[in-house]
Simulated assay, not measured.
Amino acid sequence: MTENSLATSGADLELVGIQKRFPGFTAVENLDLKIPAGSFFALLGPSGCGKTTTLRLVAGLEDPTQGKILIGGKDVSGLKPHKRQVNTVFQSYALFPHMTILENVAFGLRRRKSADPVGKAHEALRLVELDHVADRKPAQLSGGQQQRVALARAVVNRPALLLLDEPLGALDLKLRRQMQQELKQIQQEVGLTFLHVTHDQEEAMTMADTVAVMNKGRIEQMGAPEELYELPRTVFVANFLGQSNLFAVDVVGGSDQVLHTDLLGTRISVPRSRSERESGSITVGVRPEKMTLGTAPVEPDAGLNAIGPGRVTDVSFIGVSTQYTVELPGSAPVQVFQQNLQAGPTAALGDEVWLSWRVEHTFGLADDRLETGALTADLSTQAIAAHAALGE
């Protein structure tokens, strides 16, 4: 894509003490958030967590119960939607079927009596690489092309802030991944501030500079995608953003750098810098792809955590890796993702196995430790809810 004069400066967005109550429940609770100008920010969470309500508050489609919304330092809390420098791209493209693509993109400019609406519409279509279909009707375009037209129509008005409400949800997987890359490229080229609402963790991590994980109207954790994935702070984040193996343990000692914990007589160590809590009963975790599965006991090594023996209860070959489920005493079933670097699986159904991983890949969570059975049940419920929200 080439440089264009649509490039503009985005504005920062600040939410100060935002609360939104509906009869019978609170959708957003004391939300403080600042999104720097020109950034690609994602609000991620399951259905009902408050992310879409937050987006509607910013757009002016809902009024906050309390708090302020500032765009570019200006309080817009009391302004009507059309008075805010904001445009929204929805999952439904909402294109006018009787108009050409060019007319759809130029429509808002003409209503505002902007100078040279046709020239600006062509420029926006060139940005999304669709100027060659300017004279077609929406029905003659694919879903991905229609979504790009909707984006061109939003960008052509040069808003300071672009809101994306599950914009790729109606596309098939391959097209969705292609559009993720294109949206990110367009955002960098145009320089607008993007606020993207999604329940799709891969979409948020692929596109956003910063991700905020929402749960029950609050932000549980916010940061760069890799930071949230590698170092989740709560059980919810650890399980919503990818999968995690979690263990209920007791802190039994340690050094300046490392905590030592006990899992039914087995030592699991976690770096102090990677643990939210340092004493008592805590929950520690490790991502499935960080673990190694073997059919012999693991040699003692201060740099390794090792547990076992366990029993393989499921083996799933998925091409790049094989996924194992291992039953271990005193733990929820453990998931191990092993890259397929050799022909054939490492272990078969029913095999006795030992698991290990580097100490530096362990993390300790902030939540109060649940009893093992409750932890297993709670995680199962959350996993089901997360997969349902993701349409899996």
Rank of each mutant, 00 (worst) to 15 (best):
A139E: 12
G223Q: 08
T206W: 04
Q335W: 06
G144L: 11
E299W: 01
E203D: 01
V359K: 12
G60I: 07
I307V: 15
A59Y: 03
L164T: 00
L31N: 02
E360G: 02
L195V: 15
F96S: 05
G10M: 11
Q85P: 08
R277E: 01
V197I: 12
L33D: 00
A7M: 02
K113T: 02
A388F: 07
H387C: 01
N340C: 08
N157F: 11
A377M: 12
V118P: 00
G373C: 00
G24P: 12
R277S: 03
A27L: 10
E278S: 11
D314R: 15
S380T: 15
A366H: 05
S316C: 10
N305L: 13
V16Y: 00
E289M: 09
D165N: 06
E123S: 10
N104H: 12
M222Q: 14
P225E: 03
L390D: 04
E230H: 13
T346K: 14
A106Y: 02
G48H: 06
D200W: 06
L70P: 06
S356A: 15
L228A: 06
A59Q: 03
S316H: 11
H196D: 00
L151T: 12
L349I: 11
G169P: 10
A377T: 14
F96D: 04
V270H: 05
Q338G: 01
L141P: 05
K51M: 04
A332R: 15
Q147F: 04
D200H: 08
M222C: 13
L370Y: 02
L109A: 05
D116I: 06
D262A: 13
R136H: 09
Q181A: 10
V326N: 04
L6V: 10
L95Y: 10
M205Y: 03
E189H: 02
N30T: 13
V76R: 10
G364M: 11
N305C: 14
L355H: 05
G60C: 05
P271F: 04
P225A: 08
T295R: 15
Q335P: 01
R21F: 00
A37H: 05
I35W: 01
L365Q: 06
A332H: 11
A248H: 10
T266A: 13
E14L: 08
L375V: 07
F96I: 12
G350P: 08
V353K: 06
A37V: 09
P64W: 04
Y229E: 09
T292Y: 00
L173K: 15
A59W: 09
G294R: 15
R136I: 01
A42P: 04
N157L: 15
T100K: 07
E182L: 07
G48L: 02
Q335A: 11
A385N: 09
R126L: 02
T261C: 14
T381W: 02
E352K: 14
K184D: 00
K174P: 09
V58W: 01
D301E: 09
G60R: 10
T346Y: 03
P167L: 05
A332P: 04
Q145N: 03
M205K: 06
S356V: 09
I268G: 02
D63K: 15
L195G: 00
L161R: 05
A374V: 13
H260Y: 04
H98W: 03
V326P: 09
D378S: 13
A154V: 08
P97T: 10
A124M: 11
G344Q: 12
A238Y: 02
G308A: 07
T198A: 07
R233V: 14
T52I: 05
R136M: 04
A124P: 13
A389Y: 03
S269F: 02
